[in-house]
């Protein structure tokens, strides 16, 4: 179990690094591709343990579909948040009602927490100030509620329910 897990982690790292290499060189010339395979192999040997937690399982079709869904949910939230901030900034009265709220997450892996924190930072009116264990401290431009569960429903739920499926 341990060995197969390590192998799957290693191949995942190799494939991802090689894909990034291909994207950056944007060519399929033999010399470039061979260099990419060798270089990403060497980097993967040293880094696969820190690079991923679930390895090749992240390529399962279900997870890939959820990732695509996540990208769209996220981009829509990003556009909304920018319009929201633009409206606040252009309003002469500057209608803000700032406060700091907290909620608890169900996510376990560190990378999932990072993605959630980044998503919250980039969505309407919210900004992650600190993450301590599984508690998130959020600076909110327009506070609507203070109760933990309500805050969770309002800010984190749309992202977290997809992230739970991707990372677990």
């Amino acid at each position: 179990m341990e060995a197969t897990n390590k192998i799957s982690k290693f191949f995942f790292t190799w494939v991802v690094l090689f894909a990034i290499w291909l994207a950056f060189t944007s060519t399929f010339a033999l010399a470039e591709v061979v260099t990419g395979v060798v270089v990403s192999f060497i980097i993967a040997i040293y880094n696969f343990n820190n690079f991923t937690e679930i390895g090749l399982k992240s390529f399962s079709p279900k997870k890939v579909l959820y990732m695509i869904q996540y990208v769209f949910v996220f981009l829509w939230a990003l556009i909304k948040s920018n319009l929201n901030v633009a409206l606040i900034v252009l309003n002469p009265k500057l209608p803000i009602n700032t406060g700091i709220v907290e909620f608890e997450t169900k996510l376990k892996s560190d990378f999932a927490k990072l993605v959630l924190a980044n998503s919250i930072t980039l969505t309407p009116g919210t900004f992650t100030i600190d993450v301590i264990d599984n508690k998130y401290y959020i600076h909110w431009l327009d506070v609507k509620c203070t109760d933990r569960d309500e805050v969770y429903k309002e800010i984190a739920e749309p992202f977290e329910k997809i992230l739970l499926k991707i990372f677990q």
Partner: peptide, 8 residues
Amino acid sequence: SRLQAGTK
């Protein structure tokens, strides 16, 4: 709040 506006 400044960071909020700036980051997004």
